[in-house]
């Protein structure tokens, strides 16, 4: 196993996911995470020598789209789905 599940790792994972979690939650998640990881670590017992990594489960050749411009949905419709916008720009809380 590459990582040992400890408090620091849980904090780091939460930070990467932009989540704020309390010490209590960390204590709560730790055993869950351990369980999940242990479950998947069973895979490591398999011998995968000489086996190509699986990139896609379906054996499809590549599929390419022609370089053609299409517009099926208006900007107004797409902006309408956003919680807030100004003019034709999406508005989010300040980033810096």
């Amino acid at each position: 196993m590459a990582h040992e599940i400890n408090e620091d790792l849980i904090r780091q994972i939460a930070q990467l996911a932009k989540l704020t979690i309390s010490d209590e939650e960390i204590a709560n998640y730790m055993p869950h995470m351990k369980k999940v990881l242990n479950h998947f670590s069973e895979l490591e017992t398999l011998n995968t020598d000489n086996i190509e990594p699986l990139i896609t489960p379906v054996d499809l050749k590549s599929y390419l789209r022609e370089d053609r411009v299409e517009k099926n949905i208006s900007t107004e419709e797409l902006l309408a789905g956003a919680p807030s916008s100004i003019g034709q720009l999406f508005q989010v809380p300040p980033v810096i």
Binding site: R65, K71, G87
Partner: peptide
């Protein structure tokens, strides 16, 4: 003419969010 993974236009100087799609 179009974006890498969808058919939105790549035109420079289009109006704000004119070249977008789901």
């Amino acid at each position: 003419k179009s974006k890498i993974f969808c058919s939105d236009s790549t035109s420079f100087g289009a109006g704000d969010n004119e070249n977008i799609s789901p």
